[in-house]
Design a protein around this nucleic acid. Structure first.
Lengths: 224, 224
DNA sequence: TAGATTGTTAATCGATTAACAATC
DNA sequence: TAGATTGTTAATCGATTAACAATC
């Protein structure tokens, strides 16, 4: 039975959501390759998890597979996409056009993966004028305005730590719905209800170092 | 009581390790700013967690704070650093020098944060010859050799999905101890014991989209 | 002393794993 | 039919939260 879409997302554990997004992505690839069916075991191998886990995650969304057969690639993709609302293209912008920011700005894969980057921002007018990009660029003080006008839904923050919160505030003021931040430190979304996620590159490298232990690590510990 | 350093890491939950690394980083900053003491509550605010959590995480490493007073910044940093073995500089390399890879190659902050990038690799000889970088660059087929010779401990993978596993195999053959991969898809480290972590940019954006829900997200859901 | 704050135990909450009946 | 595979319940495992005694 398919539960009410509006409600589902709330009750699904965050790690499960993360894996479901990976499964969605895998289905997109499989479809492109013309693979029409896939089993939970196969999916598990691709994600680096157990088949248990895959079936359980999928069943959070209600029944979809055919008991006894595998999952139909298209149906699975479609079902996850609708349930998690990731089956449409979202407009996004990048704030902070240093090396990392401009890499993301023109990240080639994004286009086919549900993200359309429609604007870039930087506080340096000089940089904006110098950079060659397909995407329109604007000075940082126009963030709120442009986000509102272009109805941008996702903001990607790639500015230095000091200006991360200010940037987030400007995005939120423009009505952004989600933020992905590369700045270290917590982003405070206040009571706006904006979804925030952080990628902390330095910390990820630290974690790898820690997992390596003193020298001989005890078994790969890939996070899920 | 301080537990045997060699043993500790194993018994600490992965999310706790992640937060401890963040705390370590925060202490580095605090020290630079001349702040000699900090409370669990203060740390919690900076990480975006609860004070409970901070104290619990720290106590996994054994006692260090003074009951009733806060934590001494230097001692805390030192203690976490020693316990998790993140208090020294690790040599790292970047494989794949596209936009993202070359951004990481010259990521300015890394130097002061325990990572020294000593080599870059790319399969395109042309790109290697064209790129201007402070770091020595090599063709991809020399990975195993150079990793061995330079005693590189961490490999950062920024190649397309198709070549990620091959790259990992080459790094592992060279005796790498840890891998941070930007490629989607699971990396199989076999029985090498190599620590692997993955940053999947596209998936993070998908997760943000999913958390945004249909439209009105129900409260910020920042991952810890 | 009084207020603040740590370290730790116990209780709750949540996620993963295992197992199996139902079904193709 | 027989083998394969899903969906789901129950059991285990693990992490977070709450609370409080010990201490500055």
């Amino acid at each position: 039975m398919i539960l009410d879409t509006l409600e589902t997302t709330k009750n699904i554990p965050a790690p499960a959501i993360s894996r479901l997004c990976l499964i969605y992505d895998t289905c997109v690839d499989l479809e492109a390759q013309g693979v029409a069916e896939i089993s939970s075991q196969d999916l598990a191998k691709r994600l680096g998890t157990a088949a248990h886990n895959v079936r359980k995650d999928i069943s959070f969304l209600g029944e979809i597979g055919t008991t006894g057969a595998g999952y139909a690639t298209f149906l699975l993709k479609d079902h996850i996409g609708k349930s998690l609302n990731i089956n449409r293209v979202r407009k996004a912008c990048v704030v902070g056009l240093g090396r990392l920011g401009s890499a993301v700005l023109e990240y080639p894969i994004l286009a086919g993966r549900g993200i359309e980057i429609v604007a870039g921002f930087d506080s340096s007018t000089n940089r904006i004028e110098t950079l060659v990009a397909k995407t329109p660029l604007y000075p940082a003080h126009e963030i709120t305005d442009i986000v509102k006008r272009k109805e941008i839904e996702i903001g990607i923050i790639a500015v230095p730590a000091e200006s991360a919160q200010t940037t987030a505030d400007a995005l939120i003021a423009g009505g952004i719905l989600g933020i992905l931040s590369f700045a270290p430190g917590a982003i405070d979304a206040g009571s706006s209800g904006v979804a925030v996620r952080t990628i902390n590159l330095v910390n990820e490298l630290r974690i790898v170092s820690a997992l390596m232990g003193t020298n001989a690590a005890a078994g790969s510990d890939q996070q899920k």
